[in-house]
Design a protein around this nucleic acid. Structure first.
Length: 420
RNA sequence: CGGGGCGUAGCGCAGCCUGGUUAGCGCACCUGCCUUGGGAGCAGGGGGUCGGCCGUUCAAGUCGGCUCGCCCCGACCA
């Protein structure tokens, strides 16, 4: 992509509505624009990152045996009345009537719709266990949308539902998802913690929250330094290894629940078990806020210059920057490197604009390309290029011939994408 | 929903208290020259229903009422 063509309207100053860093940087780097309170447009760069996270989530859900489907956002009230949530859910549920005066709502979550599907299609224990998921836009009329896309009224979420014949099976599915979640956040390059949680409106017994550790996080948690233990409760000492717990803050990006038969019973989602008896499906549900993860990633990865994307979720991996676009040698060499990068499968942009070097550097830092290939004076004389690593500010000189190889290595070292 | 704050050019702001030429500044944008290793410089230029409605007044960005929108703090959540 040529920066001269890229639709990424950046801002030098922070708009006054943005209170937290991620919101401000998403606006400034041209990732999102607000349409209404809690309602946003994702611009090309923002969408690329959103897609990267989505794809990591999709890969890990598939790896764990999940099958993707897509449910409607539009729900008939009847389903919600069956579980009683039409009454219970409150004004957060966006309700309306169609032209025939029938009640509808926009789906804030999909237990009702998936359970309806399950009861119609699952007959036998032979079809179990079953893991179904979707990545879809959810609607919640939040009392107070906040912090940009951190708490939006319309947002992208992955929700997976597990169906098992008994509690034992549920526990296995739950374990599987727990591990899949760990892989998702690791691959996104994020420091996270899973902690036992209250299950809230969704219902059910056991549940865990997944939190991205960030200073600006709204949730307090206690973290053990020597093992992976984390909790939201006040405990002073780790029950697993007796080490002193440290207080941290986190942003909730995922939540997994063991639902049991909370939805299958009232909706009569039964299957025939091996013993010939009809039993309710034992369910679990597992959510990840995709946009929220994106915002949390920025909260956890930024400096005063801008975003420092982990490679795996950066909108582009490399920016090629000719210091002076008017100098033919800069331009030509930059072009050459850029084309080579594309050929080698890198996601790259070239800053072909006739802006000052400082302007281009600052903008590259703001957007947060993990690697910048700078083509300047040294390239004119000895053909040496410079690679700047956004994460730590390190600069490495490299010959034109060595640039691809070096970037490959850097990507491997700095890429948190842990391929199994 | 309760409490607080803000709406003046794309963004950031001044002007409002104490009403009075043509509503101003910085950045961004357009043209030209010049410049290019950390958001350059000079010259010229475009862009405003001062959120909206009603009122007070000879006169309203400025005063009063209503209204809409947005942000922040609280209960809730991915």
């Amino acid at each position: 992509m040529q920066m001269s063509r890229l639709f990424a309207p950046t801002l030098k100053e922070s708009p006054q509505e943005a209170e937290i860093v991620s919101h401000s940087l998403m606006l400034r780097a041209g990732l999102i624009r607000q349409v209404s309170a809690g309602v946003y447009t994702f611009l090309p760069l923002g969408l690329r990152t959103l897609d990267k996270i989505t794809n990591i989530v999709r890969e890990e859900m598939n790896r764990a045996g999940g099958q993707e489907l897509l449910m409607p956002a539009l729900h008939p009230a009847d389903l919600w009345k069956e579980t009683g949530r039409w009454q219970v859910y409150g004004p957060e549920l966006i309700r309306f009537k169609d032209r025939r005066e029938r009640d509808f709502c926009l789906g804030p979550t999909h237990e009702e719709v998936i359970t309806d599907l399950a009861r119609k299609e699952i007959r036998s224990y032979r079809q179990l266990p079953l893991l179904l998921y979707q990545i879809q836009t959810k609607f919640r009329d939040e009392i107070r949308p906040r912090f940009g896309i951190m708490r939006a009224r319309e947002f992208l979420m992955k929700d997976l539902y597990s169906f098992d014949r008994d509690v034992e099976g549920l526990k296995e599915s739950y374990e599987k998802m727990y591990r899949a979640y760990c892989r998702v956040f690791e691959r996104c390059g994020l420091e996270y913690k899973a902690v036992p949680a209250e299950s809230g409106v969704i219902g059910g017994d056991v549940s865990h929250e997944f939190l991205i550790l960030a200073e600006s996080g709204e949730e307090k948690l206690m973290v053990c330094q020597s093992c992976s233990y984390g909790t939201t409760r006040e405990e002073e000492v780790c029950p697993q290894c007796q080490t002193h717990l440290e207080e941290k803050k986190g942003i909730e990006v995922g939540h997994i629940f063991q639902l049991g038969t909370k939805y299958s019973e009232p909706m009569k989602a039964y299957f025939l078990d091996r013993d010939g008896k009809e039993k309710p499906l034992v369910m679990g549900c597992y959510g990840i806020g995709i946009g929220r993860t994106m915002a949390a990633a920025i909260e956890a990865n930024h400096d005063d210059k801008g975003i420092r994307w982990p490679v795996s979720i950066a909108p582009y991996e490399v920016a090629v920057i000719p210091v002076n676009s008017k100098k033919e040698s800069h331009r030509e060499q930059a072009e050459k490197v850029y084309r080579a990068l594309l050929e080698q499968g890198f996601e790259a942009v070239i800053d072909d604009r006739e802006a000052s070097a400082g302007y281009k550097f600052n903008e590259a830092d703001l957007i947060g390309f993990p690697f910048q290939v700078i083509v300047g004076e040294k390239a004119e004389k000895g053909g040496m290029l410079e690679i700047k690593i956004r994460r730590n500010g390190e600069r490495i000189e490299v010959s034109q011939e060595g640039v691809i190889q070096l970037l490959r290595e850097l990507k491997k070292n700095h890429g948190e994408t842990r391929e199994p």
